[in-house]
């Protein structure tokens, strides 16, 4: 086991994001998210990574839009979902800083979903069912979640396990940076997502997160998310803290 304390996080360059949705697909496939039944909607489906679109509210030709891939923000400081769970089904891994849901202990009360400011938690409204034959494509490293429990992004924790096992097999105590990368990061065709240990001062992710153009969503809540966004555009950075009421009707969520 790794003795060194890490704090995994990512920086998403929203100027590069095209909203293609590859990260969402990669995430769902990697984490064995079942396809939603016919009567599911964008409000009941499970998208551990979800892309939101926002615009600057101006008319053509000044109009501009931006895409925000939002997964669990991996809050570092008093994550709201951890303290509200009545049965300790959300745990923060002290060694990696990863906030993880424990589906087998989840009661499905959904209080954590109400408590999450990023709407990053999803409930299994249906029994997980895969079309005939598709179950052969399931990822053996990720256990399935049953109906009636909450799930969320855990930064592909199973990939960290795999990396650790590989390191151990090779006689190393530590994994090498780059050995552990979540599926969404890997899938992004625009290479908009940089992933790594925020505590490692030599890492790219640390450097990017410290740039002036980097920001986090709803930083005012003091939850210290470990997912950073970065943009050269002033109005995009302002969106992070903007009062939603100041732009009613001008923004919309997309899948």
């Amino acid at each position: 086991m790794s003795a060194k304390r890490a704090k995994y996080g990512m920086v998403i360059d929203v100027d590069r994001c095209t909203g293609c949705g590859a990260c969402m697909i990669a995430c769902a496939a990697e984490n064995n998210v079942p396809p939603g039944p016919a009567d599911s909607t964008d409000r009941t489906g499970i998208t551990l990574m979800r892309i939101y679109r926002a615009d600057n509210g101006k008319d053509f030709p000044e109009n501009e839009s931006v895409f925000f891939p939002v997964s669990c923000q991996q809050c570092d400081h008093h994550p709201p979902c951890v303290s509200v769970c009545p049965q300790n089904a959300v745990e923060v891994d002290a060694a990696t800083g990863i906030v993880a849901q424990i589906p087998v202990r989840c009661l499905g009360c959904r209080y954590c979903m109400a408590a999450c400011p990023y709407h990053a938690r999803y409930f299994n409204w249906w029994d997980p069912v895969w079309p005939e034959g598709m179950e052969r494509e399931l990822n053996p490293d990720v256990s399935l979640r049953m109906r009636g429990v909450v799930e969320k992004c855990n930064l592909c924790f199973h990939r960290l396990q795999t990396a650790r096992e590989k390191a151990a097999a090779e006689g190393r105590a530590e994994i090498i940076a780059g050995e552990y990368v979540p599926a969404c990061v890997e899938a992004c065709p625009a290479a908009a997502i940089t992933f790594g240990d925020l505590l490692d001062e030599e890492s790219e992710v640390h450097r990017l997160s410290q740039r002036g153009e980097s920001f986090r969503l709803l930083e005012r809540l003091g939850t210290g998310p470990k997912v950073y966004y970065t943009s050269e555009r002033e109005w995009v950075r302002a969106l992070a803290e903007k009062d939603p009421a100041s732009t009613p009707g001008r923004t919309a969520a997309t899948d």
Partner: peptide
């Protein structure tokens, strides 16, 4: 709740 049969978890592992 999604899993009523797990209601006792709250008593067993209370936060």
């Amino acid at each position: 709740v999604g899993q009523p049969l797990r209601a006792w978890f709250t008593f067993w592992h209370p936060n």
